[in-house]
Design a protein around this nucleic acid. Structure first.
Lengths: 215, 215
DNA sequence: CGCAGATTTGACAGCCATCAAGGTACGTGG
DNA sequence: CCACGTACCTTGATGGCTGTCAAATCTGCG
């Protein structure tokens, strides 16, 4: 199925299909936008940047993810979104969305559920940041992304597409690049995982889960 | 207005009014519950506990706050809730809630907005944990609570009701009690704030904001 | 080839955790 | 009235995890 021919299963046709190159800004924090955006292809990052240049990545977006559930009824968001790889995404106008939402209770329900998932994610992430070590956080990030990538790709030989650079992992896990590098080096030396050319190879998933699995 | 006489402004009457003593568990993580709970009086904590006993506080609930927006349409939550002070709360049955929600679009909208606020809160909190120092986090927690308490109480002489113990602040900020104590001691020595008997006295709000205000 | 971006590594420092001990306030019971 | 227990706050000593800074290496690409 071509991206241009897709809809969301609710009979809504996107007004626009658009693309972005890796590192392009898809949405700038606070910018007014009367539309919702859903990622169709590629990987993107939700993040905030502080005045001193430090960055916090809130989540990684994969194909099928909306930029944010809020964007279905809000005109601006409190974070930015940037393409990590080349992306394609669909744009849905608020004007066209509103009547559909108002007449479709189950669409509203999936919106509520999307919000619930986002909130649970954010809470779990905060728990990680507060209580887990660097090793645990990095492993947990890998495991979380692996789970989601599995739903979209056939995985062979434990090789997962993994487009995050070490700087991205650092900004996600609240660590310095140097330390993320050391953590990954340790995982590599222990023959648990290896990252190379945007591919995460998992040699020992049990050990990885033992370190990064929550609860 | 008596708590028992309150409703939420949408014409829904709570099925039950209930109370809890300080330190009582109001809701246990994962427990099935076919109702939503709204705090009417007192202060409560949303938290998770790890198997090793460590605790992460996700947020502080004040009067008027729902235990969680999810609870309006989910049967269980992924965290527990405990009374910090003596509390009163209202219980709304799902069975009675559902038809009201389905027939009232603006109620659903406020639910969506509540979710948006929760998510933004959680994200901002994660950013704090990832990028801020202990001083900044503790000050930020104080400022956030002060803002919300201002909406509910008349504040005189910079004296805010503040029921969190140092252990609670630690579990909220992802710090050890010992270090929270040192941070608070520094703030006291700098004549910025003082905590005593559940009252936070702010001597120098400008300095506090200079440390803990975000952006 | 040469450049830019990313990864890797080492030396060093600092923030904060851990552990331990003591202090204070307050209620309870003898 | 005092002894005692409990909960919470306070403080010091020590160490470790992780940040900072800097430089070298690697990689892809024009």
């Amino acid at each position: 199925m071509l991206p241009g021919a897709r809809n969301d299963g609710h009979g809504i046709t996107p007004r626009l299909q658009r693309g972005a190159r890796a590192r392009d800004l898809i949405y700038a924090k606070g910018r007014t936008a009367d539309h919702a955006i859903i990622l169709c292809q590629g990987t993107a990052l939700r993040f905030n940047r502080l005045s001193d240049g430090r960055r916090k990545i809130h989540s990684v977006l994969l194909s099928g993810d909306p930029i944010s559930p809020s964007m279905f009824f809000e005109r601006s968001l409190p974070f930015s979104v940037e393409a990590l790889t080349d992306c394609r995404f669909s744009v849905f106008d608020h004007a066209e969305l509103r009547p559909v939402l108002e007449s479709s209770p189950d669409l509203v329900l999936s919106l509520l559920q999307a919000f619930r998932d986002e909130e649970n994610d954010a809470r779990e992430h905060a728990l990680d940041l507060a209580l887990r070590t660097a090793q645990e956080r990095v492993s947990h990030i890998m495991l979380g992304l692996m789970e989601r990538v599995k739903l979209r790709h056939v995985i062979r030989d434990g090789r997962y597409p993994f487009p995050l650079r070490q700087q991205d992992i650092a900004d996600f896990a609240g660590l310095s690049v140097a330390h993320v590098n050391r953590v990954i080096a340790d995982l590599r030396k222990a023959k648990i995982v290896e990252i190379s050319q945007g591919v995460l190879t998992v040699f020992n998933p049990e050990s990885l889960r033992a370190i990064g699995e929550i609860q």
